[in-house]
Simulated scan of single mutants.
Amino acid sequence: MTNHHQSTRGRPRVAFVTCAELPDLDPDDRLALGPLAARGVAVEIVVWDDPAVDWSGYDLVVLRSPWDYARRRDEFVAWARTVPALVNPADVVAWNTDKRYLSELAAAGVPTVPTQWVEPGRAWTPPAGGEYVIKPAVSAGSRDTGRYDLTGPEHRELAVAHVRRLCDAGRVAMVQPYLDAVDTAGETALLFLAGPGGPAFSHAIRKGPMLTGPDLGEVALYKEERIDARSATTEQRAVAEKVLAVVPGGPDRLLYARVDLIPGPDGEPVLVELELTEPSLFVGYADGAPERLADAVLTHLARRR
């Protein structure tokens, strides 16, 4: 690693972008630094809103852990549009940082978790019963997210208050049925990394269930997750490929993609989220994944020569 005032003596100069709360990156991302150095790439860890940074001095700017963007999304998207050689590209960032993209994917035939959107200023009446997840359309790290059993009056009141709190802050709330298969099967994240022919499947992980009850206003940057290696099924791979095929602008521009799936009521995989902005890539959970991430960076550097 070098700082952003040092010469890299002709080596490709790449920024790994983070936030001030993670000045040394997420530890998982650091696993790619050695393979990149071995490939002759000089990587610098840079905070996205540091005014001293000259972004034009980098051959590639890779979004990694700028996880404080959710409360400053407009500022973050505006910044992304000023950065040359940003991956994933700024228009993808603008589209993917508002979870209303799920409606577009559903309209394109992608199986997704059914979602009700509550705009600021709109009244919301909770369903008569059942478990639901409430979260903002712009969020990261499972912040401002809660799980509610609407058969009970206390949870109904808390759910209404959660939606109101989000809308009063000018945020769009999303309400989704809680798919209880996640309690046993967990969530499967499929990771894709750029290659000569476009994004290629790299590995998969299992995330254990995280939501145990209502949102209590935690202010941590992100919620801790239980992660294990997992093999993706043929059905999961097929859904993930279908998701990537309908990304605006096409998938070939992507350096990375993470497709998060859970079993639907019929057991078939459905999309929870498509992570194209700053996802954890979990390269520490699969042999060769740090090297594949380094090669993905090289693929994008070669395209810009």
Results as ranks from 00 to 15, higher is better:
Phe192Pro: 00
Pro127Met: 07
Arg30Asp: 04
Glu268Lys: 10
Lys99Ala: 06
Pro114Met: 14
Pro269Ser: 12
Arg13His: 10
His203Ser: 08
Arg81Met: 04
Glu275Cys: 08
Ser65Asn: 13
Val61Glu: 01
Pro51Tyr: 14
Ala204Arg: 04
Glu218Phe: 01
Ala32Ile: 11
Ala257Trp: 00
Leu60Ala: 03
Asp180Phe: 09
Arg64Glu: 03
Glu224Tyr: 03
Asp29Leu: 13
Val259Cys: 11
Thr2Phe: 07
Ser139Ala: 11
Glu187Arg: 02
Ser139Ile: 11
Glu273Asn: 05
Arg206Ala: 12
Arg165Cys: 10
Ile45Ser: 07
Lys242Cys: 04
Ala232Arg: 02
Thr115Asn: 01
Pro12Tyr: 07
Glu131Leu: 08
Gln176Gly: 04
Arg156Leu: 05
Gly109Trp: 09
Ala159Leu: 05
Gly213Arg: 00
Pro153Arg: 15
Glu75Trp: 04
Ala173Ile: 01
Leu158Ala: 14
Val138Ala: 08
Thr145Val: 15
Gln116Met: 06
Pro51Val: 13
Leu150Gly: 09
Gly130His: 10
Gly267Pro: 12
Val172Arg: 05
Gly284Leu: 09
Ile205Asn: 00
Asp168Ala: 15
Val270Asn: 03
Pro290Trp: 12
Gly146Met: 12
Thr97His: 03
Ala220Pro: 01
Gly267Asp: 06
Ala185Gly: 07
Pro153Cys: 06
Ile227Asn: 12
Leu271Met: 07
Leu166Asn: 02
Arg230Thr: 02
Pro248Asp: 01
Leu158Pro: 02
Asp287Arg: 15
Arg100Met: 13
Thr112Ser: 12
Glu44Ile: 03
Leu293His: 09
Thr212Trp: 02
His5Trp: 12
Val92Leu: 07
Pro199Val: 01
Asp295Glu: 12
Leu281Trp: 09
Arg305Asp: 13
Gly288Arg: 01
Asp260Asn: 02
Leu25Trp: 10
Pro23Arg: 09
Met174Gly: 07
Leu22Thr: 02
Ser7Leu: 07
Arg206Met: 14
Arg206Lys: 10
Leu190Thr: 00
Ala232Gln: 02
Pro265Gly: 04
Gly208Leu: 03
Asp215Trp: 11
Leu25Glu: 05
Gly109Pro: 11
Thr82Arg: 15
